[in-house]
């Protein structure tokens, strides 16, 4: 691990970049950003350092939609940050994706893509699904930077794909992922991070 120094005052930044992409100098407060190699890749599944979060692997948690046990996890980078997708089993053993991004948490399951586009719709456009009009509120690219545990599908490290998020105002999120012309759609409710708890 290389040690770094503050580019403003020269103070030692230590090994902070081992864990974070952006580091403030303890001495002068100036932020430093690592422009490449945000996360070191080691092995085929990537290295996933621990980040603060409400959901952790193999630690069941309670939501207003039931209790879930995360058995697998994939981390995606969207450039400025990253979010985690947990494959979690409910009490009936049925799996669902739980997306966690800095307090924004969504519970989603696959949905029929019969009436949904196979290519990414434009930001701000409207698509029809499940008798609702959905407005695309986010359209970006993401890169898979690591995974672990039990997952329902194969993931490829460093694979880049486009994703969109769409809302219809009823508390659900419709998400599409686009890999080389193939689209996969997921739908489900937002979960309030303030309402998550541990069983018992």
């Amino acid at each position: 691990m290389e040690r770094r120094n503050c580019l403003k005052c020269g103070a030692d930044l230590g090994e902070s970049f081992r864990w974070a992409r952006m580091v403030n100098c303890d001495h002068c407060g100036t932020a430093h950003v690592l422009r490449d190699a945000v996360f070191t890749v080691a092995g085929s599944s990537g290295v996933l350092h621990e980040t603060p979060g409400l959901v952790h692997m193999l630690q069941p948690f309670v939501t207003p939609k039931g209790t879930f046990d995360p058995v697998g996890m994939v981390r995606f980078s969207y450039g400025r940050g990253a979010w985690d997708e947990f494959w979690a089993l409910d009490e009936a053993g049925s799996g669902a994706w739980i997306s966690v991004d800095e307090g924004d948490i969504v519970l989603q399951r696959p949905t029929s893509d019969k009436d949904l586009p196979h290519f990414p719709p434009a930001l701000g456009s409207t698509i029809g699904h499940d008798s609702e009009d959905w407005t695309v509120t986010e359209a970006e690219t993401a890169r898979c930077i690591g995974f672990r545990g039990q997952l329902p599908e194969a993931f490829e490290l460093d694979e880049v794909f486009t994703f969109v998020n769409a809302s219809c105002g009823d508390g659900r999120l419709l998400s599409g992922e686009f890999h080389a012309g193939a689209a996969t759609w997921f739908i489900g409710p937002w979960l309030d991070s303030f309402e998550l708890g541990r069983p018992g």
Binding site: M1, E2, R4, C6, L7, K8, L13, F17, R18, M22, T30, A31, H32, V33, L34, R35, D36, A37, V38, T40
Partner: peptide, 9 residues
């Protein structure tokens, strides 16, 4: 870890 570090100014 390789990569370019830049101060945010």
């Amino acid at each position: 870890m390789r990569g370019e570090v830049a101060a945010v100014s």
